[in-house]
């Protein structure tokens, strides 16, 4: 793991008219780091993410990738949202190729990379199927694979497994960890689910209520695969829960 900062977020602030959503947020993400962001419901997590993806402009502050201002035309930014967003008119294989084609990659690179992802995710039997024939979980696996395929500078995931049952969630999370390790990607993963954050992250940022600021940073230094019944795991989970509990 390198100590080089891949992403630098500086003094990010966002107002929607008078509504102050994000207040002076600064943090760095190392190259190859898996960072989770948690916060209470309605604290502005999605606004936070939309600022990082450049889908909306910040009121002030900035985002740098490799030292230059983030720009979707220059940098590879990939997103995965809660609702699976596979292109319905493309097969699983063509979905996985999609981003690589747009980036104008050579054919042999595209082929090699798509094969690697299909193999890693065990999608062989689905490769020629269209998304409507897949279960929600398999469609989301395709979308996650597509996002990793472009070797993004930054991969942003917004609650991708929010509606899955727990067993399924752990299975998909193990897959994400596998992809992340294999491709050494830099991931920012946003979730409401504290247990999920402790399972995945190397580091967790806890956001405060609106206007959101970084309340605390928690390092999760547990071996993988992690065990949700491990006392060290539950201690971290309980601590974070206490920081944001409103329910």
């Amino acid at each position: 793991m390198s100590n080089k900062n891949k992403i630098e977020v500086k003094n990010l602030t966002k107002y929607f008219d008078k509504l102050h959503v994000l207040d002076d947020v600064s943090f760095n993400v190392r190259k190859g780091e898996f960072l989770c962001v948690v916060g209470p419901t309605g604290c502005g997590k999605t606004t936070f993410l939309n600022l990082l993806t450049r889908l909306i402009p910040p009121t002030s502050g900035d985002l740098f990738i490799d030292g230059t201002p983030a720009d979707p035309k220059v940098h590879n930014l990939a997103f995965v949202f809660q609702e699976p967003s596979a292109m319905p008119w493309l097969t699983v294989e063509k979905n996985l190729e999609f981003g690589l084609k747009i980036k104008g990659m050579p054919k042999d690179v595209i082929k090699e990379r798509v094969e690697r992802i299909i193999k890693l995710l065990g999608l062989e039997e689905f490769r020629n199927k269209y998304p409507h024939l897949l279960s929600v979980s398999s469609e989301q696996r395709t979308v996650v694979g597509r996002a990793f395929a472009i070797f993004p500078d930054l991969l942003l995931m917004d609650e991708p497994y929010g509606q899955m049952d727990i067993k399924m969630r752990y299975y998909l999370e193990d897959e994400v960890i596998k992809l992340w390790k294999e491709f050494d990607s830099t991931v920012v993963f946003i979730t409401h689910n504290i247990e999920e954050a402790v399972y995945l992250a190397e580091r967790i940022l806890i956001l405060s209520n609106k206007p959101a600021t970084i309340k605390e940073e928690v390092i999760v230094d547990l071996p993988r695969p992690r065990d949700f019944t491990d006392p060290k795991f539950t201690e971290i989970r309980r601590h974070i829960t206490e920081q944001i509990k409103w329910w």
Partner: peptide, 9 residues
């Protein structure tokens, strides 16, 4: 259909 925290609530 609820988020994890609203669900706990």
């Amino acid at each position: 259909q609820l988020d994890a925290q609203t669900r706990y609530n």
